[in-house]
Design a protein around this nucleic acid. Structure first.
Length: 490
RNA sequence: GGGCCGGUAGCUCAGCGGCAGAGCACCUGACUUUUAAUCAGAGGGUCGUGGGUUCGAUCCCCACCCGGCUCACCA
């Protein structure tokens, strides 16, 4: 290892400790309490005058002033001051603390609790043990570690130094736990389906491709869990869900990471209306778990997850914003004419459905700040969703939006194998025409549908994007512990 | 992929043709109640990488690498 000056100084201290017969990386720690626990009952524990042992990382500056010293240790549950005197600790270890221990070293300290004259809860130390020497020095004392790239490449350091980052990921864990609790309580069974798939499907996206050496077979990293989960509904489970990673070979920006966490769930004998109620409950409970209340404050805007969401048909939403009624303007040519007449500037898309999607994305989606369901999508955009009985060109599908961002997607699942086959064939023509995101034909999935799948409601929710809203982080990388980073040359 | 901005000490940043700078951190010394401790002193650099222009380049030019924002892409 090549060490810079500061690292070399710390390594030299480590060697001096070794020479003095001290193991700088002993096998075991023996704390009797956690710092958070001590802080919660400080005055009682102090009054009892018992001796206790705490373990943690030295954080902040050590203040050594002659025959007395101050430091703080932090163990993930809280931070406590150490009061260290030459008289109590003894000359050898006092000098060791002064000369050989550094900020970021992990130590164990024993003593009794008392407040200093300024009232700060402190451990008056009678013994110190080194648990792990830190070779890397801390970043700047006040400005801290700010460089976004370094924070994400060295997330461990980011977490040590920036406690609000820890809180973001704790909130994420609480929200996911709440999501499981809601789903479990409603009788969904948590399952796991393949990540490596011979045929990818369930979403419109380009996949990552890999190769199984001994089978001599190309495999895809899943872009969705949908088709496997629906096979399980065919198999007779009344409700299933999976929380896991999906992988999409697309651009990287502040709302897209190549691997991201999705929850998908399916409920037999239900439809997309049931899924809307489920989304409302999930988001309310996740918000409470993450923020303490059924709302979030995103970039200064209060987002309310405590009430039923607005429900607007896509056609109505578009008509309201642009004056164009896609139920009347049913061909690509007519749609483009209407767009030109309305004076809207839009990129040209190859099909009516994609042009509708473009119109929606540009003129409606950015305005969906409060939680909103956009319902009833064109069939062409929804190859796995069931048609509306009275409007066969539209499907029983909704997407859930907040802060202008799509958080979820759901529909009444298509269970007619013949219709599904036609949709796959349609997608195949799109693929042949150059649409790299078109679905693949999945014969085995059709075979499953041919055994009969009950009417089913299905839902997918992007956990990362939900956490962006709940944790008020406008960049997806801030809610993913180790976001994708370009390889750095050594 | 395009546009704009950035990469200088461990960290946060200034400098922008003429000996490489500051604060914090670190090191040495003083100090028995600190809270960004204080005081005195010292050390620390491949100025992202490679070319070019120039008497001389961290600075100007070109290419590349990495990142941020943004547009495109992406349900």
């Amino acid at each position: 290892m090549e060490l810079n000056d500061l690292q070399a100084q710390r390594a030299a201290k480590l060697e001096r400790l070794r020479t003095a017969g001290i193991d700088p990386f002993p096998t075991r720690a023996t704390p009797t309490h956690r710092v958070g626990e001590v802080l919660a009952h400080f005055d009682d524990l102090a009054a009892s005058a018992i001796s206790l042992t705490l373990a943690g990382r030295i954080v902040g500056a050590r203040r050594v002033m002659g025959k007395i010293a101050f430091a703080h240790i932090e163990d993930g549950s809280g931070m406590l001051q150490l009061w260290i005197s030459r008289a109590d600790l003894g000359e050898t270890w006092f000098e060791r603390f002064r000369d050989e221990l550094d900020t970021f070293d992990i130590i164990q300290a024993s003593g009794t609790l008392r407040r200093t004259k300024t009232g700060e809860p402190s451990l008056f130390v009678t013994a110190i043990t080194l648990l792990a020497k830190a070779i890397n020095p801390p970043p700047e004392k006040w400005a801290g570690l700010q460089d976004v790239e370094e924070r994400q490449r060295q997330r461990y350091l980011d977490l040590i130094v920036n406690h609000e980052v820890r809180e973001t990921f704790r909130a994420r864990a609480r929200a996911i736990t709440a999501m499981r609790r809601v789903l479990d309580a409603q009788g969904f069974l948590e399952v796991e389906t393949p990540v490596l798939q011979p045929i990818y499907g369930g979403a419109a996206a380009r996949p990552f491709t890999t190769f199984h050496n001994t089978l001599g077979q190309s495999l895809y990293l899943r872009i969705a869990t949908e088709l496997y989960l629906k096979r399980l509904i065919v198999g007779g489970f009344p409700g299933v869900y999976e929380i896991g990673k999906n992988f999409r070979n697309e651009g990287v920006d502040r709302s897209h990471n190549p691997e991201f966490t999705m929850m998908e769930c399916y409920l037999a004998y239900a439809d997309y209306n049931a899924m809307m109620s489920l989304v409302e409950e999930l988001m309310r409970e996740m918000a409470i778990a993450a923020t303490g209340a059924p709302r979030a404050c995103y970039q200064g805007q209060e987002i309310d997850f405590g009430r039923p969401w607005a429900r607007i048909a896509m056609a109505d939403a578009i008509a309201e914003r642009t004056g164009i009624d896609i139920r009347e303007v049913v061909t690509l040519g007519a749609l483009n004419e209407a767009i030109a007449e309305a004076g809207l500037k839009l990129e040209r898309k190859p099909t009516w459905g994609k042009q509708v999607d473009e119109l929606f994305s540009e003129y409606v989606q950015p305005f969906l700040v409060q939680p909103t369901f956009i319902i009833d999508y064109p069939v062409e955009l929804s190859p796995l969703a069931k048609r509306k009985p009275d409007q066969p060109n539209f499907t029983e599908r909704f997407e859930a939006f907040a802060v202008g961002m799509e958080l979820g997607n759901a529909f009444t699942e298509l269970n007619d194998p013949f219709d599904q086959e036609q949709r796959f064939l349609e997608q195949g023509r799109d693929f042949a025409a150059g649409d790299e995101e078109a679905h693949q034909m999945d014969r085995d999935f059709l075979n499953a549908l041919m055994y009969g799948m009950p009417p089913t409601g299905g839902l997918g929710m992007g956990i990362d994007r939900i956490m962006m809203v709940l944790a008020d982080r406008p960049n997806i990388r801030e809610v993913i512990l180790f976001p994708h980073m370009r390889k750095r040359e050594e």
